[in-house]
Lab assay of single mutants.
Amino acid sequence: MEVRTIKVFTTVDNINLHTQVVDMSMTYGQQFGPTYLDGADVTKIKPHNSHEGKTFYVLPNDDTLRVEAFEYYHTTDPSFLGRYMSALNHTKKWKYPQVNGLTSIKWADNNCYLATALLTLQQIELKFNPPALQDAYYRARAGEAANFCALILAYCNKTVGELGDVRETMSYLFQHANLDSCKRVLNVVCKTCGQQQTTLKGVEAVMYMGTLSYEQFKKGVQIPCTCGKQATKYLVQQESPFVMMSAPPAQYELKHGTFTCASEYTGNYQCGHYKHITSKETLYCIDGALLTKSSEYKGPITDVFYKENSYTTTIK
């Protein structure tokens, strides 16, 4: 009895394709271990004539594949690729409408935090270190965002349907971005203890939790000093293409032309909904596939993004 075979390709990165001759009487799992086709788990399936010449994702289970996976995804987590594939199996079914010149995501599976993050990423200057993220990001900007969303979920250790947080998501993504040249110098002034300067680099240099107003941050924000008295913390120097200011959701007025974009969060910790506000020729609110415009805006804002380049204080 002759062994019926077909020729397929296996890959971990969709760049390096490895030619395989597979036995049609055995499952993919018996031949390769966990195997995925377009995100779908085909591990328990036997090869079919229609699979001839198709590319299958496999887990990096030998040295060659491990090197290829690390170079593309910059992670050695053995569960990463499987999590990416199972997320992709959902995100490829989502709709990605162009809204006001940006790629958004039609609401499904509690994905409003991903839509808000995706919209924000198209408006701030950011370059990702893992080629996987950078490639998928370019495709997302062009309207094909399924891979990018699935990668975000995998890097953030999230599953489809789980509630997510924009600030946490951005923080994970910033860790995989090139923020080497970003720098922030802060000064804390206390009447009792004097003053202390701190220099922050990388992710810490672009994120701040405690106030939404970048102007206020430049002037000074009140913080408790270690001595128990009130101290003032203010920005001395900022070198970065953008800054992200966050605070627990509270009524906040966004003035046209003073910011790049913002995240609105309605609801409580267990259950809520994100919308995205962007400042173009007027203010726009993007909620999944829905767009509304207004000249002014007041609502429960939790993150505001500002364009920056270089700032030095005039406070002496």
Rank of each mutant, 00 (worst) to 15 (best):
D62I: 06
A132G: 07
L133R: 04
V166L: 08
D41Q: 09
I45N: 13
Y297T: 03
F9Q: 12
S279V: 02
L290D: 15
S294N: 10
R139K: 15
T43N: 07
A289Q: 07
P78L: 09
E2Y: 10
T312W: 05
R66W: 08
P34A: 15
P248C: 14
G194A: 07
S279M: 00
Y214G: 01
G257E: 07
Y311F: 13
A262D: 00
A247Q: 05
V3R: 11
D23K: 13
T282V: 12
T76I: 14
P47D: 03
D13P: 06
P300F: 15
T120P: 09
A108I: 06
D165C: 15
Y28I: 08
T302F: 03
F174L: 12
D38L: 09
I45L: 13
K255T: 10
Q238W: 01
H18D: 10
N268K: 04
L102V: 06
N129Y: 07
R184K: 01
K316L: 15
Q238C: 03
Y172G: 09
S246P: 00
K106R: 15
K7D: 13
Q197K: 09
V12N: 10
I105E: 04
G164Q: 03
S240H: 07
L118Y: 09
Y57L: 08
T27V: 14
N110G: 04
E125R: 06
Q134N: 08
E281C: 06
T313A: 15
G288N: 06
C149V: 13
V203K: 12
F174D: 09
T19V: 13
T211L: 10
V221S: 03
Y73N: 04
L163G: 14
P224R: 14
V243E: 00
N309V: 15
A87C: 14
Y137W: 10
K233D: 01
Y57A: 05
L179P: 00
Q196P: 02
Y297D: 04
V166T: 08
D23L: 12
L186M: 14
D63N: 09
G29S: 07
N157P: 00
K93N: 14
N147S: 11
A117N: 01
C182V: 02
F305V: 13
K316F: 15
K255S: 07
L126E: 02
N178Q: 11
E281F: 01
A145Q: 03
Y306H: 00
K233W: 08
C271N: 12
I286C: 08
R139C: 11
L290T: 12
K233I: 15
A247T: 08
